[in-house]
């Protein structure tokens, strides 16, 4: 499968810590709404956005989980998490939403390399 014109959005920030997560998801949704193929890579704190037990938003803030769940409606079904990011947070794959895929760390350079557009949030 060619990834020549596909976009990779890297999410590195936790819910509620800043606007970065929200902005990254928005960029992914806009690109998908315009017909682009988009994959998401969650690094570091970004993995916390995928925890399936997240409840409603902190006071005055929008919850993250409904948006994560919505990604598949935009045909964004590659939610990639390196094993080391899970390990660093003492998390198990079972704690993540069903759509998340754990990948080996040594696949990351090639993953980033093969996407023509890569954006960091």
């Amino acid at each position: 499968m060619s990834h020549e014109h596909e976009r990779l959005v890297i999410i590195r920030h936790a819910p509620y810590s800043s606007n970065a997560l929200r902005e990254g998801l928005d960029v992914a949704l806009v690109a998908a709404a315009f017909g682009q193929t988009v994959s998401l890579l969650f690094l570091g704190q970004g993995v916390l956005a995928l925890l399936k037990e997240q409840a409603a938003g902190a006071p005055g803030q929008k919850a993250t989980l409904p948006t994560i769940d919505m990604l598949e409606m935009y045909d964004i079904d590659q939610l990639l998490v390196p094993q080391s990011a899970l390990d660093a947070l003492n998390l198990q794959a079972a704690q993540l939403v069903d759509g998340a895929t754990v990948v080996a760390d040594d696949t990351l350079p090639e993953l980033v390399q093969r996407h023509s557009y890569v954006m960091n949030f």
Partner: peptide
């Protein structure tokens, strides 16, 4: 229903899918 579940109104692509 889409809004109740995802807290956002759908753009065209997800509207078609839903």
């Amino acid at each position: 229903d889409f809004y109740a579940r995802y807290e956002m109104a759908p753009a065209m692509r997800p509207l078609v899918k839903a």
